[in-house]
Design a binder for these strands. Structure first.
Lengths: 113, 113
DNA sequence: TGACTAAATTGACAAACGTCGATCTAAGTG
DNA sequence: CACTTAGATCGACGTTTGTCAATTTAGTCA
């Protein structure tokens, strides 16, 4: 990259050479940001952590007592994780089982590296 | 892990065995969530992407024209990234140079893997 | 059918967020 | 000094977010 000028630019002139454009395109950035955003809450991050560590699927009623929030609030967080594609769920009888979709986390991981 | 019961539990009984607690402790989850949260906006994610790809430091006036937001708004986003420890800045004369702190991204990356 | 359970949805509310225009601070130039 | 420029901060605004209590939906079982 070329370093920026060290002298003040004259009247009305922009101060710097235009920089090359970002390499992530807009849609890609929005997708990765959506994933990061879904992980950007301590409860949701911990949810993903728990689900991940339990290779199988975990019932919601097992998750609720782990957090200091109400059942509807937890349901709301799970919905947001589902909307971002980070987790998915399956219903069996009265119970809903959640599990991590590794692809979404992989998308973020790839961007990071 | 033990799978959850498939029968309805009787009166007042909790439906499931208590689950083991998450392996990330609270402070750790909050820290990683803070990093993810800072990346959870398309503009901020793209900012980090640009700064990362330019090994040196980038002047703010080079960043502003890359986005469809005002200079104060961009300054606000940079502040949030700085607060999360993802970028740092150095002032030289009139110009502020920003650069990525790889440690923060590494923290998130480590949690992901 | 009716009583009960697990989970999702709704509606409300305060707090946080993203944005802008206006202003302020600090530094260079004549 | 006065003027200009780069960048940060402030104040206001509409929107989104996290939360709960209340309700609804869907399934179980006597």
């Amino acid at each position: 990259m070329t370093l920026t000028p060290k002298q003040k630019s004259p009247n009305g002139q922009p101060c710097c050479e235009p920089l090359v454009y970002p390499e992530v395109d807009r849609a890609d950035a929005e997708r990765v940001a959506e994933i990061a955003n879904a992980l950007g809450d301590p409860i949701r991050l911990t949810l993903v952590d728990v689900l991940r560590k339990h290779a199988g699927e975990v019932c919601v009623c097992e998750l609720v007592p782990l957090f200091d929030v109400s059942q509807p609030t937890l349901s709301h967080h799970l919905k947001k994780l589902r909307a971002a594609g980070i987790v998915d769920s399956e219903r069996r009888g009265l119970w809903a089982y959640y599990y991590v979709n590794p692809d979404a986390l992989e998308e973020l991981s790839e961007w990071l590296n």
